[in-house]
């Protein structure tokens, strides 16, 4: 097993790095989606609230694998079939595996991130918004300067958790041929017939990566909370 690991560690590591890159890109997209949809869900305007709610209901409901197939196989083919040049320009690039995977995971994780950010905004005592307004801030300015900076600190641990969920989810991208960690393991298994070893090594890589990420997030979490807690 050790010899096996030593032989293929480099290949697996490259796969892991690709998966991490995909995760960072998807998380960035999910965060932007989550921020705006969460603000929509908390808006004064009913239609914005409804649109935000619909987004969450829809994309939390579609399994990521189905979404991945839709985006990668479905959309570019459909655009080509319709033959509309605008649609082809818009959706054609999705026949790129990485781009399709990034979009699918962003949209999927965006639904969860929305709920994380919405809950974090609502977890902040209402008097923070009121105090900001009492010194003459508009709703938008109060959100930007007072509410969101505090809410996103509350959101940080669950967002890290979501990052880990996305990372493990990138293994699904193997089915559309993205050579991330799972895909690397499949190729090694196919070439050596050592299925057990190949997938155990993949599992070990995932576990170690997640432990490292957890540790990092705990350290950052402590830094973010510096000064704002009583005691110590």
């Amino acid at each position: 097993m050790i010899e096996f690991a030593a032989t293929y560690a480099g290949l697996y590591f490259r796969g892991l790095l690709l998966g991490l890159g995909l995760t960072v890109a998807a998380m960035a997209g999910a965060f932007l989606i989550g921020l705006f949809v969460a603000l929509a869900r908390l808006s004064q305007r009913r239609w914005l609230r409804a649109a935000g709610g619909a987004y969450v209901a829809l994309f939390r409901g579609i399994p990521p694998l189905v979404l991945l197939y839709l985006v990668y196989f479905g959309l570019p083919a459909w655009a080509a079939q319709v033959g509309n040049p605008f649609l082809i320009a818009l959706l054609g690039p999705l026949d790129n595996r990485l781009l399709a995977a990034t979009l699918a995971f962003s949209v999927n994780a965006g639904a969860y991130t929305t709920e994380i950010i919405r809950a974090s905004i609502q977890a902040l005592p209402a008097d923070q918004m009121e105090a900001a307004k009492s010194i003459g801030m508009t709703h938008g300015l109060a959100m930007r300067r007072i509410v969101l900076p505090q809410s996103l600190r509350i959101a940080f641990p669950p967002l890290c958790n979501e990052f880990i969920v996305i990372l493990k989810g990138t293994s699904l991208a193997s089915v559309i041929g993205v050579t991330e960690l799972m895909r690397s393991a499949q190729m090694v298994a196919a070439a050596t017939f050592l299925n057990l070893q190949a997938y155990i090594l993949a599992a070990v890589f995932y576990v170690v990566a997640v432990i490292v990420l957890q540790t990092l997030s705990s350290i950052i979490e402590l830094k973010l909370l510096a000064g704002t807690r009583t005691g110590d």
């Binding site: 005592p125 008097d127 923070q128 009121e130 105090a131 900001a132 307004k133 009492s134 010194i135 003459g136 801030m137 508009t138 007072i146 900076p149 505090q150 600190r153 704002t228």
Partner: peptide
């Protein structure tokens, strides 16, 4: 409304200081 609020200042029962 925000502009007119500038002519008032409020002190809250539970302080409501910006914790961050």
């Amino acid at each position: 409304i925000s502009r007119l609020r500038r002519s008032t200042g409020m002190v809250f029962q539970r302080f409501a200081l910006f914790q961050h």
